[in-house]
Each structure stands twice: as C-alpha cells, then as structure tokens.
Design a protein around this nucleic acid. Structure first.
Lengths: 354, 354
DNA sequence: CTCGCGAGTCAAAGCGCTTTGAATCTGCCT
DNA sequence: AGGCAGATTCAAAGCGCTTTGACTCGCGAG
C-alpha cells in the first residue's frame, strides 16, 4: 500500500492524504480522521526512502563504535548506553544504525555516513586523548556528540561526560581516609581520555595527602575480567603489594576480586576495592548494601542525554555546542575497610623531609 | 555532490556514470576508471534514499530486541552477538538498524518495519516457547531468522541455535559422574525457549541416573548477577542444599560464586559450579585453565551465522528455510570437583523402591 | 558503397513521497 | 446578486538514483 493507492481508495488527492497524516492544519478534522482510519486499516506506512528523498530531512542516527581489531571487542557498557539512546531516537522518528569501525578504517566510514544524507548525526564513542576524529568531523560538517571528552580539541563541541577526575580523586581520598597508603589503579587502555582523567584524579589525591605515586601500582588495558585478574595478581604477588584497588570497570573488578580470593584475601577485610559501577542493568544490585564500594555513574542516562543533545544539534544547528558534566556518586559497599593491622608499618624512610 | 553534478563535471550522462560506478559491463574500462577516480576525488557517495527508491532493494537489516519493561535490560550477550552480525551486513552493503521493543508493543513494530520497505529482514531475539511472533511475521512476509527456536511453530523457519538440551544434559552428567546427587539449576526466565530446553536436558540426565528432581533446586529469572547470588543463597541456606550448580549465564554464575564465597564455600572444593560461557569478549579467558567449568557456545559466531542465513533468505527467497544447530563444548575448569565427603550421606529413604 | 552489428553512450521515465501555488467551495457581508 | 475571506482540496514539480529503449559511431562483411 502506498500513498497513491491510499488516496485513490479514499477519493482524495495525495496532497490531502499526506497532509492529513502529517497533521497539517489545513485539513479538516473529519477528513483527517477518515484518512487516518483508512491508513491504519490498510497498514499503510510511508516509504522511508521516498520520504527522505522528498524532505531531505535525515532519519537516522549512527553510533560508530571503534573495535580493536586484535580483540574484536564490544564493551558491555555499550549495550546499556545504546538502550538509553535508542528510546529517544524512536520517539523522535529516527532510527538508529550501528556501525563498527576498525582501527584502520579511519575517516572513510565517517565520510560515507555523512555523504549518505540519511544519517543526521552521530555519536562518537571511546574518544582518545588528542583524538583526530573531531577535526575530521568538523570538516565534514556532520553534527556529533562525543561520549567522553577529547582534551586536545581546538573548538567547542558537544560532549557529555562524567567528572572522571573528581570522582577518582574522591575515591582515592576515601581510601586514604581509611588509612591506605599503597593504592593501585587498574585502569582503561592508556590513551583513552577517560583513563587519563581518572589517573590524574587519583594522583591529585595522593599528592594532596603527600603520598608517593608508585608506577608499579598503575595498570591500564582493555578492561576485561581477565585483565582485572592478572593485573591484580601481579601487583599482589610483588614485593610491596597494594592494600587497596581502584578499578575503572566493574568487569575488571570482578577479575580482581577473583585474584584476591585466590590469594585468600577477603575484600572488605584484608584488602579494599573500589569499583566503577556503570549501573549496568545485568549487574545491578537491587538489594541493600552493594558488594562493591564504587564510583557510580548511570550509563543508560548518559545514553539518553547524549541522544537528546544530538537531536538538538541536528535540529537547531545554529546553537552553540553543549557540554554536560555528570557528577558521579561514591556508593558505599562492603569491599572497603581500613588496611589490615598485620601488615608491618613501613619503616620511616631515612631522609623524609620535615 | 550528487550524480548529476558528477556527470556534468565529467561531461558524461548520468546513465554512464551510474553504470560505471556499479560495475555494469557496458561501460568501457577507460571511462570506468575516469569516473571512479572522479567519484573518489569528490567524495561522492550515492544517496541511499534515492538508490533505495530507484532499485526497490532493501538496504537494512533490523535487530529487534525485546525489552522487559520493568527491568529495561539489555543482555550483555547481545553486544557480542550483534558485533558478529554487523560485519556480515556491512560487507554486503546493508546497514544494521537496532530496534527495542517493549512487551506491549507487539506486532506494530514489526509491521512498521516491514511496511518501510528499507528493511529487508530481521533477526528475532529472545524467543519464548510458543512465541506468537512467527505467525505474524509469516503473515507479514518479511524474511527473518530466529536466534533460538520456538517449539510451537507450525511451519519451518530459519533458525540458528545451540543444542541446549544436549549441552545441559552433558553438564549434568558430568556432575553426576563426579558423584553429585543434588544439582541445582539457575536458569533463564521461565518460558524462554532456551530455558525450557536446558531444564529438559538436565532432567534427562537426572532421570537417566535415577536421581530425583527437586523443584526447590530449580530457579529461573532474568539472568543478572544479583539473581545468581540470591537464588544460590536461598538454596544454600535451605535445609538440604545442593552440592553443585549449573548456571545458564556467566553473569549469574559470578553472582553464585559471590554467594558461595560469602558462605565460605570455595568453588572447585566445597561446591561445584558449571557456568555457561558465551565466550563474551570482555569475559574471555586467554589463560591456561579457565576458572569456571562451563558449557561454551561462541555467541559471536552465532551472530555471524544468523546474519549470513538472513541475507540468504532475503536474496533467494524461494529456497527452503535453513536450520543450524550448534553443538556446545563442555570446557573443563577449576570450579568442579567431587562433592565434599564431609556432607553426611543421606539416610536411605524408607520406601525407596528396588 | 552499403548494411549490420556490437560497443558505448544517452535522454527520459519512474520509484513514492512532500510541498508549492493555484483552484474550488463555503458562508456571510454589503 | 455580487464579492470576498477563509477553509479545503488539488495538480504538478521535484528530490537523486536506476533502468529501459533508443541512438551514435566504427568497422568488417557482403
């Protein structure tokens, strides 16, 4: 069933039928009702192609997800982010197209998407520090929203991010307040913008407390369970193990927990862990006190916000880019405690000033 | 840059340029090269709408994911499945559109997708036993592939599934072989087709070994970490706890592990766990022996297969539906062992026959 | 020298929708 | 009765592509 058939059926012109369906005011209410009823009865839905061609208005949003070619990974966080965004799109008449991009593909994909005309804008995932994509996107002219930030950017751009530095400073302060002095950070891949900020946050807290930074207690990689396990294992078996961990991802934190338990260390008693809780639906704790003390930022909400921001950028391009910084909470759980007394206090270093 | 501009630029007709770009044989090689070079130089990409309208050939595949309205969940397994499928689509010139569907939305979404004409087919996720969607899709006439199976289906349809029954029977046999008699199943939501099959598989093994089925040792729900924890906790604290668990999802298995450890039970020593490993990239163990003994079926591969099957169904609709049953492996890990001796042997029930 | 043929190219129609500008139909005022 | 504004409706153009059917051009066969 197409518009012509439908209009013929109703004895009306295509113009009138089209206007009736699109809620134009110059159609009488009685006609509109008649048209809409008929459309429903005959399961008429406008052809997206024809509509797009006629209006020139984009009807899709692309999410471009970089995929590390060696690992072929899709971050589980991504699923929740998307599910937040997608609802916004559908309720505004856009469809979401998903596009994986390999490290090597570079600009081509973005240019193709833009040249298609059907894609009104896109969400940039997993920004790196000094990511070159922005310059390219600005040149291409497609509206975009970055989930995260890119430090080296020249011009203002739309982004939504959590306050990583503040949150991780806060997390480290919490541990320091409990008496920890050797705090490890198990972080995302080096170069990822969020990872840089998180490390900065922790360093700030250590510096403020006059604590040294031990490079051996900082690890960064793709945040798998396995990585959380191995990094923790390595640190815990070293000469001077940490008494606490801050971990950038719940998935890796689960790996770290596994490592601790393998060594007979009980989190919340012998060792402390602060995890990162993206409020992933499949890992959500409805119960009373959560297992992990964690930095919580609701990722689904990020998705919703990013989508709204993008639609705004598409529909009112003249307005200035928007920035949204989301504060993260530190949720108390049962995985943190003061460091165990048993660990022998460091002998005071000979020439420690003042 | 559009076709007309490009052709004017080259001093050729639109016809010739179009044909050159689409590799039609009736264009001389020298012209074709000239055209392709110019197209690249001016970043020309055909307008998808116009192309679709002109050819009538679909250029998108939809993945329709049911979302439980109360939980708003996106299964982490889904991310990996999709990433397998998407590569197939892009390499065949299709784009993937993602569509969430609420329990209530029912047929409307499917009909709309079909009426759009741009969507050539779809993947049905999360089928329930006696799912009514198939009848509807058959009526609508869109090609589709089911990830999983639907027992009550009337007519043959395209599906790809793992051999759930066999795999879970095998898992239960493994535990029975180790000497376990009280085996718990922490399963997916009741009514999900895969959950039904898995339970059947376990029951078969129990029956074959002459072991009774204890309803209290079977739980089913959305497979979150929390559910794995709570279900296990409930069972372990009951009067007659299980000595082994079979768990339908790695995520829930992690919750179960947490429960065991909270009670001082070490998996692989005091309690046995067989998990379900979807080979999720973020949970993949590259190392030697994995932590969990588990039923493994590579979900990403399912995605690839499903996509290929769907494209075949779209491009050669006359062919009969295809079925692919994938065998799952049972991967030995460190979470299984014979039941602990300490547990007092059951006093023989008075009137147990022969 | 003409004709036929294949290779290469072209003009124009058509895909299904929106939108412009004009036409028609009311009812009501003068 | 005539005129006019406002309310409805309409015919036709145009969006950018593919594809049909026709045209042009060389060249070898007759």
């Amino acid at each position: 069933m197409n518009l012509r058939e439908l209009s013929k059926l109703l004895g009306l012109s295509q113009t009138t039928v089209s206007r009736a369906l699109n809620n134009y005011p110059e159609v009488s209410e009685v006609t509109r009702k008649r048209v809409k009823d008929a459309a429903r009865r005959h399961a008429y839905a406008p052809n997206r192609w024809a509509k797009g061609l006629a209006t020139g208005r984009p009807n899709a949003i692309a999410h471009v997800v970089p995929v590390d070619s060696t690992h072929e990974m899709v971050n589980p966080v991504f699923a929740d982010f998307i599910s937040g965004a997608i609802e916004v799109y559908t309720s505004h008449g856009y469809e979401m197209i998903l596009s994986l991009i390999r490290a090597g593909d570079g600009p081509r994909i973005y240019r193709d998407l833009a040249a298609r005309h059907s894609v009104g804008g896109l969400i940039v995932h997993a920004p790196m520090r000094d990511d070159t994509r922005l310059a390219m996107l600005d040149e291409i002219g497609t509206p975009y929203v970055v989930h995260g930030r890119i430090s080296g950017a020249r011009r203002p751009y739309n982004w939504i991010d959590m306050d990583n530095r503040r949150a991780y400073r806060r997390a480290a302060e919490e541990l320091i307040g409990l008496g920890h002095e050797r705090i490890a950070l198990i972080n995302g891949r080096a170069g990822m913008d969020f990872a840089v900020r998180r490390e900065e946050g922790m360093r700030e807290a250590l510096a403020a407390a006059g604590l040294p930074v031990d490079r051996a207690l900082i690890a960064g990689d793709e945040m798998t369970e396995q990585f959380g396990y191995e990094a923790a294992m390595r640190m815990l078996e070293a000469r001077r193990p940490p008494t606490a961990f801050i971990i950038s991802s719940l998935v890796s934190a689960i790996g770290t927990r596994r490592a601790c338990e393998a060594l007979g260390l009980k989190p919340g008693r012998d060792i402390s862990i602060i995890s990162h809780d993206d409020d992933l639906s499949y890992f959500r704790h409805d119960g009373a006190q959560p297992y992990f003390t964690s930095v919580r930022s609701p990722i689904r909400e990020h998705g919703t916000q990013a989508a709204l921001m993008l639609l705004r950028a598409i529909e009112t391009p003249q307005e200035a880019p928007l920035q949204t910084l989301i504060e993260a909470e530190l949720i108390p759980g049962r995985s943190t405690a003061p460091p165990p007394k048993s660990s022998p206090p460091e002998p005071p270093a000979p020439n420690l000033a003042s």
